[in-house]
């Protein structure tokens, strides 16, 4: 009866779906051709860009007093930015899109459950139920989700969905990976990609900094990055925690059922203690005046 269990429940850590897919981005290979931006635009049926995709002057753009470079928007789910670094004599290009977290903060913050993490690794989004609270945008540690603020009738969240519906679901690589001319992006099982990344680093340790961005950040992401220069120099936030964002909120969520269960008895008890022998409560002034009258 009390024999050792054949199968015990695992500890409550989610390291992503075992067969989840991912993309390995090798910044040392990216040439900044922006063809991934063009492919994404076509695949997702996004509106025509303000400047054509072969216009490289966009790399000069900066915003908010020169502090910010381009970022994904409602009209562009991925963008490539150019960085200069002392560690490299050439400019470095970095592609930005949704990183498809193993335990996405957007998903855990959504109060209508609009987000889904599919077994293939994609973080998809049901715009039919979006209320427009924009909590997911607050929660995303990578500042990824965009919102169609200009639409008064049907404003929704807009972000990269890993080409889930049209490609990844059927085992095909997303449009940006397929078009990449320099093999800077490779598509595969996340576990395999981690192995490939380590092989590259072992084979040529001078070429890479010793870190795979996305392996552990906020619980791990489906998209992984290799870089030849320190990650913070090419726009990555290297101060992120290793635990998923939801871990921070679990303390509070755990107190909720406790408050619901304990408070009724606690405060009814206070009431009984505080009013013992004092008779019943009075009413808003009226009662006393009535008492004086009669």
């Amino acid at each position: 009866m009390l024999s050792p269990a054949k199968k015990a429940l695992a500890a409550g850590n989610l390291a992503g779906f075992p067969d989840g897919m991912g993309v390995l981005v090798d910044l040392t290979r990216c040439v900044g051709c922006r063809s991934c931006e063009a492919a994404c635009n076509r695949e997702q049926g996004l509106p025509a860009p303000d400047q054509p995709f072969d216009d490289y002057s966009v790399f000069e753009q900066s915003f908010h007093g020169g502090t910010q470079k381009r970022r994904p928007t409602e009209k562009a789910y991925t963008v490539v930015n150019r960085y200069e670094s002392e560690a490299s004599d050439k400019p470095i290009y970095r592609k930005i899109q949704c990183n498809h977290c193993n335990e996405p903060a957007c998903l855990t913050s959504c109060f209508v459950g609009a987000y889904t993490k599919t077994p293939e690794g994609a973080v998809t989004y049901n715009s039919k139920v979006c209320v427009g609270c924009r909590n997911c945008m607050v929660a995303c540690p990578f500042h990824v989700p965009a919102y169609s603020y200009s639409d008064p009738i049907d404003p929704v969240i807009k972000k990269c969905i890993f080409c889930y519906d049209s490609r990844v679901k059927h085992g095909m690589p997303p449009a940006c990976v397929e078009i990449c001319p320099s093999q800077a992006l490779i598509f595969g099982k996340r576990d395999e990609l981690l192995k490939i990344a380590r092989q590259r680093m072992t084979k040529d340790p001078a070429k890479y900094v010793d870190h795979i961005y996305g392996e552990h950040e906020v619980g791990g992401t489906s998209w992984l990055y290799l870089s030849g220069v320190p990650f913070e120099e090419v726009g990555f936030d290297t101060s992120l925690q290793q635990e998923p964002i939801i871990s921070n909120v679990k303390d509070f969520l755990g107190t909720v059922p406790m408050v619901l269960a304990i408070w009724p008895a606690l405060f009814t008890g206070f009431h009984l203690l505080a009013t013992k022998g004092k008779g019943d409560h009075h009413d808003h002034g009226q009662a006393e005046e009535e008492g004086e009258d009669s």
Binding site: F111, V112, G113, V129, G132, C133, N135, Y147, L253
Partner: peptide, 25 residues
């Protein structure tokens, strides 16, 4: 809210019970 007419969605139509905002709502 972007779509205020969907305010009641977390109550009646589509639930995200593990979210803090769900509790607030």
């Amino acid at each position: 809210l972007g779509q205020p007419w969907r305010l009641a969605y977390p109550m009646v139509y589509s639930f995200g019970p593990a979210a803090v905002l769900f509790l607030v709502g």
